[in-house]
Write a protein that binds this DNA or RNA. Sequence first.
RNA 1: GCGCCCGUAGCUCAGCUGGAUAGAGUACCUGGCUACGAACCAGGGGGUCAGGAGUUCGAAUCUCUUCGGGCGCGCCA
Length: 591
Amino acid sequence: MMPDTKAAITARLHAARMQVAPESAQTPILLERPKQAEHGDLSCNIAMQLAKALKANPRQIAEQIVAALQAQTQWADGLISAAEIAGAGFINLRLSIRTKHAVITQVLNAPADWGRGARTQENIQVEYVSANPTGPLHIGHGRGAAYGASLANVLAAAGATVTREFYINDAGRQMDILALSVWLRYLEARGRTVAFPADGYRGAYVRDIAVALNQAHAAQLERDDPRFAAALQAAAQSEQVADDEAVRGDAALDALIALARELLATDWRVVHGFALQAMLADQQDDLAQFGVTYAHWFSEQSLHDSGQVARAVAQLESAGHTYIKDGALWFRSTTFGDEKDRVIRRENGLLTYFASDIAYHLDKFSRGFDRVINVWGADHHGYIARVKGALLACGVDAQRLTVALVQFAALFRGGEKVAMGKRSGEFVTLRDLRREVGDDAARFFYVLRKSDQHLDFDLDLAKSQSNDNPVYYVQYAHARVCSIFVQAKRDAQSLHSTPLSPLEGARELALMQRIGEFPELIQTAARELAPHLIAFYLRELAADFHAFYNAERILVEDAALSEARLALCAATRYTLANGLALLGVSAPERM
RNA sequence: GCGCCCGUAGCUCAGCUGGAUAGAGUACCUGGCUACGAACCAGGGGGUCAGGAGUUCGAAUCUCUUCGGGCGCGCCA
């Protein structure tokens, strides 16, 4: 249903209701599409909503509303062809065929804009993926990338101004661990024997970076120091531990990092920067090939360099929301609904990741966004309260921040769950997945389920039966339409003034109705932050087209009928293409 | 233990601010190409919406509770 059509009908129902029950003006008029086709094109439950307040039989109320509706002067304009009362008191409306045809004309008059909402004043930032630059992106990041990019597209199509951003965690301890790991592999590449720390990054990509580092700097980064071997032994022997013993394992690694920084002096920045740039380039390349792009790549380190982190901490301190305990500086986040207070400056004087995240979010809102959406992995849900608390403490309305949690993607191979761990290097990368199932299939597959639903990614199925992926079903519909126009030697854009009256078959009407739902669907998907609705819609649209295609021949002798059907095909094509574009999936003309 | 998310067909999942007979894909069964692309279509079987209670004209949807699963609960990020 085109939004303006629906709005017009809603207004008429409202007017009719005001005649019957003027005191019920507050009860909203809701129109929905019935599941059963015999229930008409639109259904309204207002009579049942009013039954209790009016102390009357809902069917009687419905009869009065319908009578008032039919008495309206606009009734004669033919927008609605019938109004019936059914069931417990539903008012079922049938649209005139001319109303249904109007949607085709609307699509063909402005194909590129079809589905897009009117521009709103809303300025939204969407931040997604923001993976640590300490390893290649894995399939969990892929889900965040597909979801975030599609969501940003949907929000923009709904009318908002959208800015896409990636936050680079280039300042923390994890990055130091990567730099250390690269340096150790570099030493190995230069023929030294090193005991590798238990918690270092062990992936093969670390060796690749180290080899490149060796080629670029040769012996420049080698160091000799008796303390180094001892520290290395200590870190290597501190086994990977969990929970309460984690701190002890951390200490050995931190000592090793500190020593490496001391020995390398200014060359530490060389190693660190080299590793960072290598990983960043890898991630950027990976995402770009996946069709996931950004307006900004925002560096965490830049917040430290500019003094914003220090200022954010000072702001919290001066507002009286901090205290010192055990030598650390704590933010009293419990005041703002968090379950416990949080450290923002450690006993050793270093600021926590949370401290820079406060500065980052303050920076976001200082840039004038009305709304900020963070796409996070579901394991970060416990982090939301403290960030919102910090915003509140700094006088920012935390309602303007929405965190969209994306559940994990669990990987299955041979019917068994694949263990994933960055440190061990045992994980399937996004790059591997893309190569094996293709970018289109991966993008579509990722958004084919609700974001808060766990995703069981069956690798064998995705690889061996990729032809069964629903993306091909939708793309095939698009290719089929294109093929018709090649056959007809016609241009889809030449049909915008074609008379549509010959279109009256059930399949044709169903397809038109589906096409007409597209604009409202985009609004819903934007409101619910649910790009999966687009994917499901496209499958249904493709199904309606395939059904129509199999039932009716398009290129027939009757020129008027043929032209009208071509116009319907053209509208289908543009809707498919625009929908696929929202998901970052290509719309091939041939397959 | 506390908090968040989830539980719908054999499997993977939809179900919009509560609506009429709970849907799709897949798998299984039966049909359809001398017709614009069969990567398609038409039809069939398959359900205690995890269990229970409540709210109301009406509950898969909202509330409470039990059971089951995932994640989080560090001066890591």
